[in-house]
Computed example of a mutant assay.
Amino acid sequence: MEQSLIAKFLDRKTTQIDEAIAIKEQQIALLKERKQIIIQKAVTQGLDPTVRMKDSGVDWIGEIPERWDIVPNKKIFSLKKNLVGKKSAEYELLSLTLRGVIKRDMENPEGKFPADFDTYQEVRDGDFVFCLFDVEETPRAVGLSSHDGMITGAYTVFGADPGVSKEFLYLFYLSLDSRKMMRPLYKGLRNTIPKDAFLSFKTPLPSLSEQKKIVQFVEVAIKRTELGITHMSEQIEKLKEYKTTLINSAVTGKIKITPGMVED
């Protein structure tokens, strides 16, 4: 009788907790989606909803503000390919991840490493790192480095025109990448974007002052959204902890289960 009461009690309570967790996970998903929408609208439509629009000339971007320019990437990005050669020991090892361009922990290495790093290429603070192959399967295909270091030669490193906001460019291409909107540029079975195709692509650009305003707006919005996601994640962890504690307390007799606790 007591075991049956405990089972019924835990079944009801854990179901309620799991439902609460599922709701909060859905809320996190919505917040992440909202963040992407905010970025996408800001970097393609600007901040003024009343501004006149024009066709960008790119189907998957659509209309952009009339006063924005459409600039070929070859005028914005400069291809870099500086191999570290025998000086690799002087460089930090970098990696492109969902968190952006990060330093690899060489004291606790994960994954495989080559016998030497001679063919790795130099990355400087402010450089862009693109993964232009297997783009469809790559979780993050663009990064803006805030580190000096080296990265595998399989990636493509670009410098950017100092007259353009690097942060704006990063948000623009991050938005395209998050929705895998650059599919029309893919070539071959590995969904590769050829460097010449990328450099021929045209980026819609507002004035530098407007680029900076957009970046500032997006950064504030992202921070607010991330705080919401963090809050929800903390609530989920607390619910999981409560569930574990509740199960343990019920099966060890720390709480007394009565028939009234399992009745509808």
Rank of each mutant, 00 (worst) to 15 (best):
3 Q>W: 11
4 S>T: 12
4 S>G: 07
5 L>H: 07
8 K>S: 14
12 R>F: 10
14 T>M: 13
15 T>M: 12
15 T>D: 10
16 Q>C: 03
16 Q>D: 09
17 I>N: 05
17 I>P: 01
20 A>W: 15
20 A>I: 13
22 A>Y: 14
26 Q>N: 14
27 Q>I: 15
29 A>I: 10
30 L>N: 13
32 K>T: 07
32 K>Y: 05
33 E>P: 00
35 K>S: 15
36 Q>I: 08
38 I>C: 03
39 I>H: 01
40 Q>P: 00
44 T>R: 04
45 Q>C: 03
58 V>W: 04
58 V>Y: 09
60 W>F: 11
64 I>E: 00
65 P>N: 01
66 E>N: 01
66 E>W: 00
67 R>F: 00
69 D>Y: 03
70 I>Y: 00
75 K>R: 09
76 I>F: 10
76 I>E: 08
76 I>V: 11
77 F>H: 05
79 L>D: 03
80 K>L: 15
83 L>W: 03
84 V>Q: 02
86 K>N: 06
88 S>P: 05
92 E>Q: 09
93 L>V: 13
93 L>R: 02
93 L>P: 00
94 L>I: 13
95 S>C: 07
97 T>H: 05
102 I>Q: 07
105 D>S: 03
106 M>H: 00
110 E>A: 05
110 E>S: 06
111 G>Q: 08
112 K>L: 15
113 F>M: 15
114 P>M: 10
120 Y>P: 07
121 Q>V: 15
122 E>G: 00
124 R>E: 09
125 D>L: 06
126 G>I: 07
132 L>Y: 02
132 L>R: 07
135 V>A: 03
137 E>V: 11
138 T>V: 08
141 A>C: 14
143 G>Y: 10
144 L>P: 02
148 D>I: 11
149 G>C: 08
154 A>P: 01
156 T>M: 09
162 P>W: 09
165 S>Q: 06
166 K>F: 04
168 F>K: 04
168 F>H: 03
171 L>I: 03
172 F>N: 02
173 Y>E: 02
176 L>R: 04
178 S>C: 03
182 M>Y: 11
183 R>K: 10
183 R>C: 02
186 Y>I: 07
187 K>Q: 09
188 G>C: 12
188 G>N: 11
189 L>G: 02
193 I>E: 06
196 D>Q: 08
196 D>A: 04
196 D>F: 05
197 A>T: 12
201 F>C: 01
202 K>Y: 01
208 L>C: 04
208 L>Q: 08
209 S>H: 01
210 E>K: 04
214 I>V: 07
215 V>N: 03
215 V>C: 05
218 V>I: 15
219 E>H: 00
220 V>C: 01
222 I>M: 07
223 K>H: 09
223 K>M: 14
225 T>V: 11
227 L>D: 13
229 I>L: 09
229 I>S: 08
230 T>D: 12
231 H>P: 00
231 H>G: 05
233 S>H: 06
234 E>F: 04
234 E>Q: 13
234 E>A: 12
235 Q>N: 11
241 E>F: 03
243 K>T: 13
243 K>E: 15
243 K>V: 15
246 L>H: 08
246 L>C: 12
250 A>N: 05
251 V>T: 14
253 G>L: 14
253 G>S: 12
254 K>H: 14
254 K>Y: 11
255 I>Y: 06
255 I>P: 14
256 K>R: 11
259 P>G: 05
262 V>P: 04
263 E>W: 14
